Simulated assay, not measured.
Amino acid sequence: MLRVNEFKVGYDNKVVVKDFSMHVKKGEVVTIIGPNGSGKSTVLKAIGRLLKPMDGTVYLDGKSIWNMKGKEIAKEMACLSQHNFAPEDMSVKKLIGFGRNPHKNWLEGLNKEDESIVEWAIEKTNLKHIEDKGMMNISGGERQRAWIAMALAQKPKILLLDEPTTYLDINNQIEILDLVKELNEKLQLTVIMVLHDLNQAAKYSDRVLVIKDGNIKGVGKPENILNEKLIKDVYKVEMNILRNQFGEKLVFIPKQICN
């Protein structure tokens, strides 16, 4: 469905990520993990066409995204960054309505079909009870759900999430990731996200891609590749890894930092 071909990505003349390739199948949840500064968010921006690569490209259903119009891409792929802002007086429902913009002409209002899709997105993210509240009058977890609802209103095939649990407490982190997994399973929504927490990456991902210093260190099912050696090499931390009786459902417990 989506293929990244030999990316070289950076800012100005500084290369951040090099020789980066990946393939994501329809309906997969793929999580990019790695230390701070390893290039995770840079890769996601380039996949979402927010940053042009120095070399390489992204193919969406066999077509280079750089040969596609912005609206055409927005109908296929939605991207949420770490930091999203809305006017203080904007209601939750109004924000979600902006997700229909890729399907509208300039200054064209929402029609009945658009309003129906907005209602659908509100229901899917359990926001009906606060749809008329201002974005600044709801909790951090509710705001994040509102942004995800806006992305859903685009009716994309692929959802890109850059650290969707940043600044949220553990309760809201679980709520957001449970929602993402539910949308993935019920809608066959393909998800590519960046996470820091190894336990969350292992629990919610079909595959993880480990990156360090702009280079891929491993790709595969969490239970197959997230071992003590890889984690020590990438994070410089010795880790106890617990597994259930089937060898799945990993739990990571740090032991000590390595020099």
Rank of each mutant, 00 (worst) to 15 (best):
L187A: 04
N137G: 14
L179T: 12
F98K: 05
G70N: 14
D178P: 01
K124F: 02
I148Y: 02
M90Q: 13
S91R: 12
Y167K: 02
A151V: 12
K93Q: 10
L161H: 04
K133T: 05
L80W: 00
T190S: 07
F85M: 08
L161N: 04
K93V: 01
K104A: 06
L152D: 01
S116G: 03
L107F: 15
V58F: 02
A146Y: 00
K128A: 13
I122K: 00
T190G: 02
T165P: 03
S91Q: 11
L95C: 03
W106I: 15
H196Q: 12
M135L: 14
R145A: 03
K94W: 02
M136A: 12
A121Y: 00
N137K: 12
D178Y: 09
L168D: 08
N67G: 14
L152F: 03
D132E: 13
E76F: 05
N67Y: 06
L127D: 06
Q82G: 08
Y167M: 07
L159A: 03
A146I: 01
E182Q: 09
M150E: 06
P164H: 12
T166K: 11
T165V: 15
K128E: 15
V194L: 06
K128C: 06
K112N: 12
E131K: 13
L177H: 05
A78S: 13
L195R: 04
L161W: 06
R143E: 04
L183R: 04
S81C: 02
I96L: 07
R143A: 02
K94I: 01
Q154F: 11
L127W: 07
H103I: 12
T165S: 11
E175M: 15
V194M: 06
G140E: 00
H129D: 14
I176R: 00
L160E: 00
D162R: 06
E72G: 05
K69G: 15
W66S: 12
N184A: 05
G134N: 14
E113L: 08
H103A: 08
I130W: 03
